[in-house]
């Protein structure tokens, strides 16, 4: 344990939140209308992520040469750009960072279950993620940004996928962890389908006591529902702007 007091006896966390409070969540869609089919910007606390989606199209730029397009569904390719300045300590990451590769596989699996596959046979969808600043909740930010960018690109989805990280401090679950908390506590990231209780994404990189897991997940689901509401609001605002004058 570090010398930091992560959760004070009065029930306040390092950044002044209570155990069940989300960080400030802001998002925008259609941020780069000329550069990509769909684009989004997500800000969770001090974490900032940009996502660009190109496609569906027949010739993917990220596709390795000779890759066959699938007649049953789209070929997703995910590219994560995590520049040295984005995290707390300036550090250059190798091009094939193990952790980022794993994250991209998890996200790919998650969204292959979310996209209505039958509509996109023999196509490629390129997803480009750029981290502008990272203060915890890497996978959650990615997931929310991709959901919004796919919706902006007009790609058919069964539902929203909203994600959040939940950690455990002693007996108390903590919602939406920042980088300081993530360093010291074990946490799990979950992604929820729309307003349901179904999980489309789970990742736990630490050890967690099994009997506490249920409580963590139910707190996470509550948080995801709130995030979904905020994202939905933004999609409607952006849609209204697009419709205005035609």
């Amino acid at each position: 344990m570090s010398r930091l007091e992560l959760y004070s006896p009065e029930g306040l966390r390092v950044d002044g939140r209570r155990w069940n409070e989300l960080r400030r969540f802001e998002c925008q869609i259609n941020t780069h209308p000329n550069a990509a089919d769909g684009s989004s910007y997500v800000q969770q606390g001090n974490s900032k992520v940009l996502c660009l989606v190109k496609g569906p199209m027949e010739h993917g730029a990220n596709l390795a040469a000779g890759t066959k397009l699938d007649p049953n569904g789209p070929v997703l390719s995910l590219n994560i750009n995590y520049p040295p300045f984005a995290s707390n300590e300036r550090k250059k990451r190798p091009k094939n960072d193990r952790r980022l590769q794993e994250i991209s596989i998890i996200l790919k699996r998650c969204f292959m279950k979310t996209i209505v596959l039958k509509n996109y046979s023999r196509t490629a969808i390129d997803i480009n993620l750029t981290v502008l600043a990272m203060d915890g909740g890497l996978l959650a930010c990615f997931c929310n940004a991709i959901t919004l960018a796919l919706i902006d690109a007009g790609i058919s989805l069964y539902d929203y996928v909203s994600a959040v990280s939940v950690g455990l401090y002693d007996q108390t679950p903590l919602l939406d962890m920042n980088a300081l908390e993530e360093n010291d506590l074990s946490f799990v990231t979950i992604g929820v389908v729309g307003d349901s209780d179904k999980l489309n994404l789970t990742l736990c990189e630490d050890k967690l006591p099994l009997d506490k897991l249920e409580r963590l997940i139910s707190l996470g689901i509550e948080g995801c529902h709130r995030l979904k509401e905020l994202m939905d609001l933004q999609v409607r605002v952006a849609g209204g702007q697009l419709q205005e004058r035609q």
């Binding site: 069940n20 409070e21 389908v193 509401e229 409607r236």
Partner: peptide
């Protein structure tokens, strides 16, 4: 333990259904 998250103010987004026919995925 009661699991609930604090919500400062709930925007009345879901009420727009009657006025316009804008829908989002999963609706």
């Amino acid at each position: 333990m009661i699991i609930s998250i604090s919500v400062p103010s709930k925007p009345e987004a879901s009420d727009t259904k009657a006025g316009s026919s804008v829908v989002t995925p999963g609706e």
